[in-house]
Amino acid sequence: MPGVGKTTLVAHVYNMVKLDFDAAAWVTVSESYRLEDLLKKIAAELGITVNIANVEMRGLAESIHNYLQGKNYILVLDDVWTPLVWLETRNVFPTSNCTGRFVITSRKHEVSLLATGESALHLEPLEAHHSWLLFCKGAFWNDDDKECPFELQELARKLVAKCRGLPIAIACIGRLLSSKPPTLPEWENVYRGLDYTFDERCDP
């Protein structure tokens, strides 16, 4: 589901390992992708020196294939909505005399079925305990103990509950509250604002 931390997790790993490869590329796909535009993005990320504005799609695919030949490379396709993305692009990437690693993030179960063996990682919302720890770490990052004052705990738990275990939402609210005075009136204002936002999104 959106906000569970798929892109954040992959970005962390990608930044750790990308220098171990001869070539690395990160491309956000999105729901309304066009194959030609996607290949142009991949070529640009890889630093391929071709006139990607004017080259035909077949020539672009060949340029990517030739560039990666003999290299160890990693490609991240972020926010993929349909398995068709991989089916349309997989032949662009060489499989002999090189090592390719592909990482795909998606909110669609059918996309995860593209993974081989035990390679699919399904992220779930955080449990209540971990949601609370993440919230306190963000809201009280400047405190040594990272603990919520007793008088704010009831309201804080209501705020965390609204996030439904989504790490990005919890982290954002925690950062927002960290910039506010830790008083009940200030936090109640934030809570009312969230109530208004959630009600608007739920209206038909």
Score class of each variant (00 low, 15 high):
Trp141Asn: 10
Asp144Tyr: 11
Cys136Thr: 04
Gly138Ser: 15
Ser112Asn: 04
Glu147Ala: 11
Leu155Ser: 10
Thr99Pro: 00
Ala128Pro: 00
His122Asp: 08
His129Pro: 00
Cys98Pro: 03
Pro149Arg: 09
Lys146Ile: 02
Ala115Cys: 06
Ser131Ile: 00
Gly138Lys: 15
Ala139Asn: 03
Lys108His: 13
Glu118Val: 07
Ala120His: 08
Ser131Thr: 02
Leu114Gln: 05
His130Trp: 06
Val103Ala: 04
Ala120Gly: 07
His122Ala: 07
Ser119Leu: 08
Leu133Asn: 09
Ala128Asn: 06
Gly138Leu: 13
Leu134Ile: 00
Cys148Thr: 05
Arg101Phe: 11
Gly138Ile: 02
Trp141Glu: 14
Ala120Tyr: 02
Ser106Pro: 08
Glu118Tyr: 11
Glu110Ile: 10
Lys108Gly: 04
Asp144Met: 08
Thr116Met: 14
Phe140Asp: 06
Glu127Ser: 05
Lys137Thr: 03
Leu155Phe: 07
His109Val: 10
Ala128Tyr: 07
Gln153Asn: 12
Pro125Ala: 03
Leu126His: 00
Ser106Gly: 04
Phe102Asn: 02
Leu126Ile: 03
Gln153Val: 09
Val103His: 02
Lys108Asp: 11
Trp132Gln: 11
Leu121Ser: 07
Arg101Thr: 07
Leu114Val: 03
Phe140Pro: 05
Arg107Glu: 09
Leu155Lys: 07
His122Glu: 08
Asp144Asn: 10
Phe102Leu: 14
Leu134Pro: 00
Glu124Ala: 02
Ala120Met: 13
